[in-house]
């Protein structure tokens, strides 16, 4: 590994200024669970690591305000899981966060980092995309907001300009009942990167969003126009062609984890399973679930 320097800015302005002045020769460090692997394996080299964990504005914090849940960039998966569990919020995000690595990883990895790493297989990303989550970006010109699905521009590519950093993730709080679910396919039950994964959301009005991961460089967000998927009474044989038509838009690749046709086939399997779960959650009905 090429040696590098390290700084721990105290506030977000300092972090942004440093990031702006070092640019491509620096890397931002949040939980570090992906960055250290890449550095160690020489996949990336850097002169400077800017550790965001000392930044006062980014300290772990989850709050509800103006219809959103705001999750600060310093919030770890473990912290997120505990909060959502205690408040009965977004069980799909709990399920996704619970399979990000092992406990040791989740104690370090952050939700914002999982997004910014922009791995197509990231487990929280399709869930966030389905929930219409967006990131709060701090930069020299102030704050801006981008939907998660648009913020990720490709494999390992994100929409961050000079000096910009993700300050928080926002998820719209449901107004009434909604049903959400997460599902994934892996090679084994223990810690594994997803072969494919997805998030699903059924709104109170019955609108259905399906978001798939690991089938394209960016999360693939699909909306059901037919209304069939949102109908808990719909028959399986009516759902199948709708799901088929939607998932046909996916363009998965073959890699070391799976072949493309297996990935494709798993999309409808996951869609069926997560729709069933989301409908059940909706019916089970904690207001936010």
């Amino acid at each position: 590994m090429k040696p590098f320097d390290y700084m721990q800015p105290k506030d977000i302005a300092e972090a942004s200024a440093a990031w702006a002045s070092y640019g491509a020769s620096a890397r931002l460090l949040a939980g570090g669970t992906d960055l250290s692997v890449a550095l160690r394996h020489g996949k990336i080299a850097t002169d400077l690591v800017i550790d965001l964990k000392g930044v006062v504005e980014l300290q772990p914090d989850i709050s509800e305000s103006s219809g959103h849940l705001r999750i600060s960039a310093g919030t770890t998966m473990t912290g997120l899981i505990a909060y959502l569990g205690a408040h009965g919020l977004f069980p799909s995000l709990v399920d996704a966060a619970c399979v990000v690595g092992s406990i040791q990883i989740r104690n370090r990895a952050t939700l914002a980092g999982n997004i910014c790493n922009a791995s197509p297989a990231a487990d929280t990303v399709p869930v966030l995309a389905a929930l219409d989550a967006f990131v709060e970006i701090y930069g020299p010109d102030g704050l801006r907001y981008r939907p998660v699905a648009a913020f990720i521009q490709g494999n390992r590519q994100i929409d961050l300009g000079t000096g910009e950093l993700v300050a928080a993730v926002h998820i719209p709080l449901p107004l009434g009942k909604q049903g959400c679910a997460f599902d994934r396919i892996t090679r084994r039950r223990g810690v594994d990167l997803a072969t494919t994964n997805m998030g699903c959301l059924i709104s109170g009005a019955g609108a259905v969003t399906l978001a798939f991961g690991a089938v394209s460089p960016r999360p693939l967000v699909l909306h059901d126009e037919s209304g069939i998927l949102g109908d808990p009474m719909a028959k399986a044989q009516d759902r199948a062609p709708v799901i088929e038509a939607l998932t046909a838009q996916a363009r998965p690749i073959s890699d070391v984890r799976a072949n493309a046709d297996y990935r494709s086939a798993m999309l409808s399997v996951m869609a069926e399973r997560s729709l069933a779960k989301a409908h059940a959650r909706m019916a089970g009905g904690a207001a936010h679930a």
Binding site: G32, S36, V49, T78, S102, Q104, I105, N107, V191
Partner: peptide, 21 residues
């Protein structure tokens, strides 16, 4: 960060020492 042979407890929580600086 896959094998856990390096696990230590930091501030009460287990972490992979190989992934931390």
């Amino acid at each position: 960060g896959e094998c856990g042979a390096c696990t230590v407890i930091m501030e009460g929580a287990p972490v992979n020492a190989c992934l931390l600086l």
